[in-house]
Amino acid sequence: MWEHGQFWWNELMTGDAEKAKAFYGSTLGWTFSEMPVDGGGTYWVANLSDKPAGGIFEMRGPDFDGLPEHWFSYIAVDNIDERLELAKAHGATVTRPPFDVPGIGRIALLKDAGGAAQGWMTPA
């Protein structure tokens, strides 16, 4: 179960998913399962003891040019649409409006008032 305001998910944004999978598989014992991505590609769910531990997203295309590899965090919120309005009223910038991922939840990407990028999501 999730609680409003807690960090809910972390994913590695990488240019080389195979290299990342080899590293984390060897060093942390993670195993990986595939999840298709709309528009093509694969999202990798990292598992530890058959429980999801995080994800690996392979950055492809011009939107990611020059962006270094990094870990990206998501925070669970009770109502993504209402919380985004509140965040904007307090200085946030929405960089990707809410979208639904079946079986996962409703997600949006934003920068807080100081410019820190993050995802907010209402988990399914």
Rank of each mutant, 00 (worst) to 15 (best):
D16F: 03
D16K: 03
A17H: 05
A17P: 03
E18I: 09
K19N: 12
A20M: 06
A20F: 05
K21G: 01
K21Q: 12
F23W: 09
F23P: 00
Y24L: 07
G25C: 09
S26D: 11
S26G: 10
T27D: 08
L28M: 10
G29Q: 02
G29P: 02
W30Y: 10
W30L: 05
T31P: 00
E34W: 08
E34M: 01
P36N: 02
V37R: 09
D38L: 09
G39A: 01
G40A: 02
G40M: 01
G41L: 01
G41W: 07
T42D: 03
Y43Q: 05
Y43C: 11
V45T: 09
A46E: 04
A46V: 10
A46T: 02
N47D: 09
N47I: 07
N47A: 14
L48E: 10
L48H: 14
S49N: 14
S49V: 11
D50F: 10
D50G: 14
D50T: 11
D50W: 14
P52I: 00
A53T: 00
A53C: 01
A53N: 04
A53M: 02
G54R: 07
G54D: 04
G54H: 01
G55Y: 05
G55R: 03
I56S: 00
I56F: 08
I56L: 06
F57Y: 14
M59I: 02
R60S: 12
R60T: 15
G61M: 06
G61W: 03
G61R: 04
P62C: 09
P62M: 13
F64C: 00
D65V: 07
D65E: 13
D65W: 06
L67T: 13
H70A: 15
H70F: 15
H70V: 06
W71Q: 03
W71S: 05
W71D: 00
F72V: 03
S73C: 14
S73Y: 14
I75W: 15
I75D: 04
A76P: 08
A76E: 13
V77W: 09
V77E: 08
D78H: 02
D78W: 00
N79H: 11
N79W: 01
N79M: 08
N79Q: 04
I80E: 06
I80L: 07
E82Q: 15
E82C: 08
L84G: 02
E85W: 03
E85Y: 09
L86R: 10
A87G: 07
K88E: 09
A89Q: 13
G91E: 03
G91W: 05
V94M: 05
T95R: 02
P97Q: 13
F99L: 11
F99N: 04
D100G: 05
D100A: 11
